[in-house]
């Protein structure tokens, strides 16, 4: 797991073309998660219209979020779990 942790520190140090691009990259998560302010959104989408690199970075970020949601399989809750929780609770004073 050590290599993953080291790697996590390295990937964020990627160099960007302009200070603007750097700011855009720092907004990526808030944009795809719907947490950005109105002002940030305007700034973001104006930049992305003219910057190919940031446009593609946004696409990738957005796609990753969708892929995670769509392809991680949900596990079914074992039915004995629900039964056992209920019975323990009913027996608790």
């Amino acid at each position: 797991m050590k290599s993953t942790a080291t790697h996590l520190n390295q990937v964020s140090k990627k160099q960007w073309a302009t200070p603007d691009c750097e700011k855009i990259v720092s907004l990526l998560d808030m944009i795809v998660d719907g947490e950005a302010t109105h002002e940030d959104k305007n700034y973001f989408f104006t930049h992305v219209e003219t910057c190919k690199e940031c446009f593609s970075e946004h696409e990738k970020h957005q796609r990753l979020k969708e892929v995670l949601k769509d392809s991680i399989q949900r596990k079914a809750v074992p039915s004995r779990l629900l039964t056992s929780i209920k019975s323990v609770i009913h027996a608790t004073a």
Partner: peptide
């Protein structure tokens, strides 16, 4: 929360790319 998300996503993007 934000910085963990950002780093985790960059890692996943790279892996999946």
């Amino acid at each position: 929360v934000r910085s963990r998300l950002h780093r985790a996503r960059n890692f996943l993007k790279e892996k999946l790319e």
